[in-house]
Nucleic acid binder design. Structure first.
Lengths: 210, 210
DNA sequence: ATGTGATAGTGCTATAATTAACATATCTAT
DNA sequence: ATAGATATGTTAATTATAGCACTATCACAT
C-alpha cells in the first residue's frame, strides 16, 4: 500500500463523511464541495481535503466532488464494498441491542451467528439467527468464514471468548467488555467503553466550574 | 484550575486507570508502580506518569503509588466523587441496553428518568424508573436537577430532543444517534458511533492485505 | 478564445501528543 | 550513616496531527 500511515482520526472522519454523503445523495444532490462536507459534519474544509488526499484525488478543482463517486470511493477505502460476516458473542443487554442495531446492517455488517453461555437463551431466535452455545463458536465461525467478532460478555469471560475467536480465525474484534484483552498482533482489536464516554463529559463539566 | 489544557486522550486513559485501580484494590494490593499500571492497561509507563503529572504528584519516588489514594484522586479528577443524575431519552434497543448497563451504576451514573415517544412504552417500569412521555422531559429533568442527558432516539428526532435537554439545563449530552447535533458551546457533547468502530476495523483489515 | 471566479490539491507552519532520558527522592540493607 | 536499588516527576526530543496559505485546475460567461 502506498499510503504509509493514515491517522486513525482520519479513518473515523472518512466513515463519517461517507455516511453524510449517503444522506446527501439521498436528497439527489450531485456535487458537493469540501466546505459543504465540512459544514455538514462539523470539521474544517482543509481537514476534509487533507483526509481525502491520503488516498488520491477524487474531486475536480473549481467544482467539487461528485457525491456518488466520492461515496463509493470512501466505502471502498473503508473496506465496505462487500458485506462482512459478524459473530456476536454474549446476548446480555448490550448484545441484544447490537443484534438489532440498524446501523450495522446499513453498512454491510451482517450478524451471521450469535453465541451465549446461558442454556436458556440457546436455541432461541434473534431475528433470523439461532442462538448457539459458546462451545460451538470455533466450529461455526470457521465454517462461516466470519472475519469479525463482537464481544459483549462479562469482563470475567472476555479473554476466554477472545481466545476462541482468534482460534476461529477472525481478523478483527470489537470489544464491549470492560476488560483489557490480549490478542496476537495481526488481529485488529478495538474497545468500546461506554462509561468512559460519560466520564469525559463529567470531567469537562467539572473543569468548567473549578 | 492550573492545568491549562489536558488532552482528551489523557482523560480517557485516566478513566481506564481508575477502573483498573478499582480492580487492583479489590485484590488487596496496596502499592503499584507506573510500570504495573501501564502493563495492566496497555500503555507505556511514561504515559502513565505524564498523564498523572497534569494534575499533581500522587506517588512517592522509589516506591510507587498508593492504590486507594490514587484511585480516589482519579475519581475526584474525573468528577466522580459524587453521583450524577442521568436522563435517558429513547427506549429502543440501545436505550434499553443502556438502562440496565452495570458499568454506569458502578461509576455513579444514576438514571433518574427515562423518556420515550411511544405511548405503549410510557408508564412501563424499567428497573425502578417509570417511562415518561417526552413532553414531560423539560419539566422532570429540571425538577431532578439532572445534569446529563443520554440521547438514544432515531436520527430524525435527535436534534429536537437535544434542544429540549438544553432547555432543561443539562450540562452534558451523550449522543448515540447517528446525527450531527448542534448545541450551545457551554454544553458538553459527545457522540458514540457504533458503526464507525467496526469500520475502523475493516479499514485496518483491508490495509493489511492490500 | 479568453478572462474570471471558484475550489481541489499540496507544501509549509504551528501545535499537540507521545516517547525517551534524566535528575530527584525514598526505602532498605549493611 | 551511607550506598545502592528503585521509581517518581520533569524536561527535552521526537513524532504525529491539524491548520493555513498558496498554487493549479476547471467551468462558465463574455
Amino acid at each position: 500500500m502506498k499510503t504509509l500511515k493514515v491517522p486513525e482520526a482520519t479513518i473515523i472522519r472518512l466513515s463519517v463523511y461517507s455516511r453524510y454523503l449517503t444522506e446527501v445523495d439521498r436528497k439527489g444532490i450531485i456535487t458537493i464541495s469540501s466546505g459543504e462536507i465540512a459544514e455538514g459534519v462539523g470539521v474544517s474544509p482543509a481537514q476534509v481535503r487533507k483526509d481525502l488526499a491520503y488516498f488520491g484525488e477524487f474531486g475536480t478543482r473549481g467544482v467539487g466532488y461528485n457525491v456518488k463517486d466520492l461515496r463509493q470511493h470512501l466505502l471502498k477505502i473503508l473496506g465496505l464494498s462487500s458485506d462482512w460476516s459478524v459473530a456476536l458473542v454474549g446476548l446480555g443487554n448490550i448484545g441484544l441491542a447490537l443484534s438489532s442495531f440498524k446501523g450495522f446492517v446499513e453498512r454491510g455488517f451482517i450478524i451471521t451467528s450469535i453465541f451465549d453461555a446461558d442454556p436458556s437463551k440457546v436455541g432461541t431466535m434473534v431475528g433470523h439467527v439461532e442462538v448457539m452455545p459458546v462451545e460451538k463458536l470455533v466450529e461455526v465461525v470457521k465454517q462461516n468464514c466470519t472475519q469479525i467478532g463482537i464481544v459483549a460478555v462479562p469482563a470475567s469471560e472476555a479473554q476466554e471468548i477472545v481466545d476462541q475467536l482468534v482460534k476461529a480465525n477472525v481478523k478483527a474484534i470489537l470489544n464491549f467488555s470492560l476488560m483489557v484483552l490480549n490478542v496476537p498482533p495481526e488481529i485488529e482489536l478495538r474497545n468500546v467503553d461506554l462509561a468512559v464516554n460519560l466520564e469525559v463529559l463529567t470531567f469537562n463539566v467539572c473543569a468548567q466550574r473549578c
